[in-house]
């Protein structure tokens, strides 16, 4: 199963960092290939993304379910379930205070393509995930730091 974890240090205290990542609308457009998302309720949403698989690009609809939202531990866990493609997965967002002015942000994502040719798709997906995670985390970091002035 392709897994990626990306860490970065945001030059901002915990509160504004967590305040930012807690509101999905604020960072959703930073996800590469993001087209739209629709919130079904406070835990479930449907995301439409244009994703790369090797030299192909396809529009994927995924249902995202928040399985754990812990404001105290500053941790969000979610599951992914493909609607128009056979894929499952999940991920976590964790924010950890490093100092009064720095917060570590960890983004972990795993996706497993299913179906008969899943093993092949996973090979193609693997190299695509890291740049996606990096780009999103770095954009979040940049935006928070910009907001902090």
């Amino acid at each position: 199963m392709p897994v990626v974890e990306y860490k970065c240090i945001v030059k901002a205290p915990m509160e504004p960092v967590w305040g930012f990542v807690s509101v999905i609308e604020k960072w959703a457009p930073f996800l590469k290939g993001y087209e739209e998302h629709e919130e079904l309720n406070d835990k479930e949403s449907v995301w439409t993304l244009k994703g790369d698989v090797g030299v192909l690009s396809r529009t994927v609809k995924m249902k995202v379910t928040i399985t754990n939202w812990d404001d105290e531990a500053k941790r969000v866990e979610f599951e992914l379930d493909g609607i128009n493609e056979k894929a499952t997965g999940g991920g976590t967002f964790i924010a950890t205070s490093e100092s009064d002015s720095e917060t570590e942000l960890i983004f972990k994502l795993e996706i497993n393509a299913g179906g008969m040719i899943g093993p092949v798709v996973n090979v193609l997906l693997g190299p695509m995930l890291k740049p996606v995670a990096k780009e999103m985390a770095e954009k979040i970091k940049a935006r928070i730091e910009e907001l902090q002035g």
Partner: peptide
């Protein structure tokens, strides 16, 4: 008979 294709082997070759 796509079920007969060793897809994991195909994945390994691609990788």
């Amino acid at each position: 008979t796509p079920e007969k294709v060793p897809w994991e082997k195909m994945g390994e070759r691609l990788a």
